[in-house]
Design a protein around this nucleic acid. Structure first.
Length: 561
RNA sequence: GCGCUCGUAGCUCAACCGGAUAGAGCACUCGCCUUCUAAGCGAGUGGUUGCAGGUUCGAGUCCUGCCGGGCGUGCCA
């Protein structure tokens, strides 16, 4: 709708340019916004304010010219100049009624668009190494990443959900040694316990399972335990599969699934890491110093050059990252987005620098990043420090079991990614009704509650009659509801552009609020046929949009609560 | 020290690319279930948008400098 108004204004500016009122070479950026106050109409533009100076005129005069030059159309009922020179648009009543018909026709498809044109986008998220169960931080990553995929899909993109992890290397060896130590009956208190060993209780379970000869099946691998305490390789292989399986359970409980799993080890075994190094060396972006090999990342905007090959001959973490993203680029995605905690934000510059140094024509901004801030976990009024190695943390699964999937997902995805959030375990698990997710779900359930009462009260419902009678709904609350419904497609677009699912959550809270208020002061199941049908049609549309939006957040829309 | 980021009501958060009188929830006070689900609604209290400048017709939003929090600045990932 914003777009349609904008194109009307563009036509008007073209007209005024040809008349010479607006300088022909002046760039025009037409902005149409929702109004905050309904006294200002439905949509408003500040165009006249921005054009006043180049036209050497005052804003209100420019506004008059623009309005006079607006093409004839069906969607605008009335146009006004207000304040310093805003142009306020009042949409024709029929267009509000049409939105309701559109919602009921398109149902789950309402709000989606084809701007992605079926292009392929890869979203890499979670990407936790198999060294322990997932915690709240991974939960934020999973909720954000999955919701982004849903959003992009709603905008016509084809998402691939990818999970990248390390199944070899120092930390994995450390994991295997920790398991072996538990098998031998050692505890972190013993002197013989490995220095950086994983101390968590889950290692005990893992060790027990290995010695029992269990078979584990994860989404991307399966293995049967050898039950040999001396075979470190076998322990390692089992431990990785075991913990991957545990993570699968966590993610399934969260309703998050992946299409592709990528292994850091395969980058080595496929020769991609070596090939990347060679390319960087051949391109002259490396040098040796102090026994290490450095990459001149400063040539691509970094603060200082970075070590890529350590003294001991091993590579630092970002080198395989560069190789991995080179491969991602070559896989032909139209867009690649990495969901990462802001504690890793320094890798953004490094990885992009490495990709530029390859001189392969990879775009400078590749890949995209969706960074989210850290979560502080509170319990009993105190901060809980998250540390895998120390084993002191709150698992995602515990959280889901205690607070529920919907409440947990909603909480994690309803705050802007750049906001640091505090997760108060006591609050989240106290089963109170403070969580806004219930507020939204309840609005949805209420509509279905009303529909279920129809037969009981011997009343009929005729959708076509309701749509025809929509124009007769003239309460402020009804108009506001239709206005809010009309905004939904714009929100879906804006949230995807900003990579911010939280915008959907905020929208839904507002829509639910309007509905609760309307529901409370007006009866739906009235005797009068037209009014009853029209109100039910409107309510069904509200429920549909609530369900569509909740689905983008990965939250269910129950019909009764 | 330097870099990134955040700072909005007592608390948790909104405010769409700079737009009109900065909005919700929680908490607190007072009302609303003989009527479709009270996990709800209505009313009230609560603000110098961290501070000081600047740009602009217009700044919570952009720029500069301070103050405060978080993260980074490892041959850890």
């Amino acid at each position: 709708m914003k777009q349609q108004i904008a194109s009307l204004l563009e036509a008007a500016t073209d007209q005024l340019k040809s008349e010479g009122f607006i300088p022909a070479d002046h760039p025009i950026r037409v902005m149409v916004d929702n109004t905050r106050d309904k006294a200002h109409g439905d949509l408003a533009s500040n165009l006249a304010l921005m054009l006043a100076k180049p036209c050497q005129s005052n804003p209100r005069a420019v506004a008059e010219k623009l309005i006079a030059a607006l093409p004839d159309n069906q969607i605008v009922d009335k146009v006004e100049i207000a304040g310093p020179g805003f142009i306020n648009f009042y949409l024709a009543g029929e267009s509000s009624a049409e939105i309701v018909a559109d919602i009921l026709n398109r149902r789950a498809q309402f709000g989606t668009n084809d701007s992605g044109q079926g292009r392929k986008v890869q979203v890499e998220f979670v990407s936790a190494n198999p060294t322990g169960p997932l915690h709240v931080g991974h939960g934020r990553n999973a909720a954000l990443g999955d919701s982004l995929c849903r959003l992009l899909e709603a905008n016509g993109w084809q998402p691939t959900r990818e999970f990248y992890y390390n199944d070899a290397g120092a930390q994995i060896n450390n994991l295997a040694i920790s398991v072996q130590s538990r098998i031998k009956g050692l505890t972190p208190e013993d002197d013989a316990w490995p220095a950086d060993g994983y101390r968590g209780e889950y290692i005990i379970e893992l060790a027990r399972s290995y010695m029992k000869g269990d078979q584990v099946i994860a989404d991307d691998r399966e293995v049967t335990a050898k039950a040999d305490a001396d075979d470190l390789d076998a322990i390692l292989e089992f431990a990785v599969a075991y913990l991957r399986h545990e993570q699968d359970l966590d993610l399934k409980a969260f309703d998050v699934r992946f299409d592709v799993y990528s292994l850091e080890s395969s980058l080595y075994s496929d020769g991609l890491v070596e090939a990347t190094v060679k390319q960087l060396v051949d391109n002259g972006f490396t040098y040796e110093d102090d026994g290490a090999m450095w990459l001149k990342t400063t040539e691509f905007g970094d603060d200082k050059d970075r070590v890529m090959r350590k003294k001991d001959g091993g590579y630092t973490y970002f080198l395989p990252d560069v190789a991995y993203h080179k491969a991602k680029f070559e896989r032909g995605f139209d867009r690649v987005i990495n969901v990462q905690g802001a504690d890793h934000h320094s890798t953004v510059t490094r990885v992009r620098a490495g990709l530029q140094a390859l001189k392969e024509g990879i775009p400078e901004g590749f890949p995209d990043y969706a960074l989210y801030q850290m979560i502080m976990v509170m319990r009993g009024g105190e901060e809980v420090k998250l540390s895998k190695r120390a084993g002191s943390y709150v698992t995602l699964r515990d959280l889901i079991e205690e607070a529920g999937r919907d409440a947990t997902r909603y909480f994690l995805v309803s705050r802007r990614a750049d906001a640091q959030i505090t997760f108060d375990i006591d609050l989240a698990t106290s089963k109170n009704n403070d969580n806004p997710v219930y507020y939204i779900q309840y609005a949805h359930a209420r509509v279905h509650g009303v529909l279920n009462r129809l037969a009981e009260q011997n009343l009929s419902y005729d959708e076509a009659a309701g749509l025809a009678a929509l124009g007769k709904l003239d309460l402020d609350a009804e108009r506001e509801l239709m206005t809010q419904l009309r905004r939904y497609p714009d929100v879906v677009t804006a949230a995807a552009d900003a990579l911010e699912p939280a915008m959907i959550a905020n929208y839904l809270k507002d829509l639910a609020g309007l509905f609760h208020s309307y529901y409370n002061s007006n009866k739906m199941l009235v005797e009068q046929d037209d009014q009853r049908n029209a109100r039910l049609v409107l309510s069904k549309a509200v429920a549909q949009v609530l369900a569509n939006g909740l689905n983008l957040l990965g939250v269910s829309a129950p019909e009764s609560m």
